[in-house]
């Protein structure tokens, strides 16, 4: 993996992962991962199901027990107190209260982050849930739950937003809108890490981390990845890398 040497002029990275090792259920799930995520970018964390995406994301937000190594976010250890209203996490399964309305869910998280009710309404509008604001979360479709969960994170106006497979099962139009929002947030200087197990969103990212069996097999821009592997689409690039690795074994 090419080390991303910080150029003297480059701003400090938003996230630094340094030799991270995580065991889960007695098995090594992340095996010595290192990378840096530049501020103001969208980084795609791609890999098949079970490759360790959620585990890495949990390590970045500080809810995962790690065996060794270090994760630093905005200059502080992952999960430490000063980060708790600067970093927001959208879990893979919508983590909202089914027995509360959309409005009450988002207003609750808004209050925890010290934001106002009006901010909650704005976040609900941003994810296109305005017309469902009064509906109980239990009565929402899967995609609507995901969007509500996203609103609960957006309401924090986080500097770092970590999203675990946020677009699974969403309508293509809404998916497109969300990606535009992610891009807009990055342009405004926020840092986003978005995981996905499908490749068709990879081109929306500034950088890609390809994860397989707990190891990074690529850490590059989509363009450079295509060029390096001599492939047209990223799915093919991923396959190419896996084959290459298996041959060298």
């Amino acid at each position: 993996m090419p080390p991303t040497d910080a150029k003297p002029s480059a701003p400090p990275p938003a996230i630094t992962v340094d030799r991270l090792v995580v065991d889960r259920g007695g098995r090594s799930v992340l095996r010595d991962l290192s990378t840096t995520v530049p501020a103001g970018s969208v980084t795609g964390l791609l890999g098949p199901s079970g490759s360790g995406k959620t585990t890495l994301i949990r390590s970045i937000v500080g809810t995962q027990k790690v065996k060794s190594g270090r994760v630093t976010v905005l200059g502080d250890p992952a999960g430490s107190k000063p980060l708790r209203n600067r970093v927001a996490y959208v879990t893979q399964d919508a983590s909202i209260y089914p027995d509360l309305s959309v409005r009450s869910n988002v207003a609750y998280f808004a209050a925890l982050y010290g934001r106002r009710r009006a901010d909650a309404m704005a976040a609900i509008e941003r994810v296109g849930m305005g017309e469902f604001a009064g509906r109980l979360a239990a009565n929402l479709s899967g995609g609507q739950k995901t969007r509500t969960s996203l609103a609960c994170a957006l309401v924090c106006e986080p500097e770092v937003l970590v999203l675990d497979e946020p677009t699974v099962g969403l309508d293509p139009v809404i998916r497109d809108e969300l990606w535009s929002q992610f891009r807009a947030l990055a342009s405004a200087g926020k840092t986003l890490v978005v995981s996905s197990h499908v490749m068709d969103e990879a081109d929306r990212c500034d950088r890609l981390l390809l994860l397989r069996e707990g190891l990074f097999i690529a850490d590059d821009t989509p363009g450079d990845l295509r060029a390096a592997t001599g492939t047209e689409n990223l799915e093919a690039a991923f396959l190419h890398l896996i084959r290459e690795l298996e041959e060298t074994r």
Binding site: R58, V61, G62, T63, G79, R84, N85, V87, A88, Y89, T91, D93, A94, S95, I96, Y97, P98, F109, L112, Y113, G114, C152, C156
Partner: peptide, 13 residues
């Protein structure tokens, strides 16, 4: 089990 506890642990709670 609903994941809200994990989420709350990433907030100022």
């Amino acid at each position: 089990t609903g994941g809200t506890l994990e989420r709350l642990m990433t907030t100022p709670t």
